[in-house]
């Protein structure tokens, strides 16, 4: 799987629901949105090895 987060792109091994990946990467579910293969997606969507996944932080402090 290709993972894009915080402007960085990396190969990452993960299978399972997107919300588990969000948690694993240290984000809170309420503070990010997820794009799978360029499409905005539910955080319950299952991710597979061939996917390109982008985690976008949308909630900031202050």
């Amino acid at each position: 799987m290709i993972l894009i987060s915080g402007g960085k792109t990396a190969e990452y091994s993960f299978r399972g629901p997107a919300m588990d990946l969000i948690k694993k990467m240290g984000f809170r579910r309420e503070e990010v949105v997820i794009k799978i293969n360029g499409k905005l997606s539910s955080d319950l969507e299952e991710i597979i090895d061939s996917d390109e996944v982008e985690i976008i932080k949308v909630v900031f402090g202050g």
Partner: peptide, 28 residues
């Protein structure tokens, strides 16, 4: 708040969002 972000993304509304430089002082 998350739904507002989703609405902005779906509608191509530009938001120059980033973190306020003083956010670390914020109780909020």
């Amino acid at each position: 708040e998350k739904e507002i972000a989703v609405y902005a993304l779906l509608n191509g509304i530009n938001t120059g969002e980033s973190e306020c430089p003083y956010a670390q002082y914020s109780l909020r």
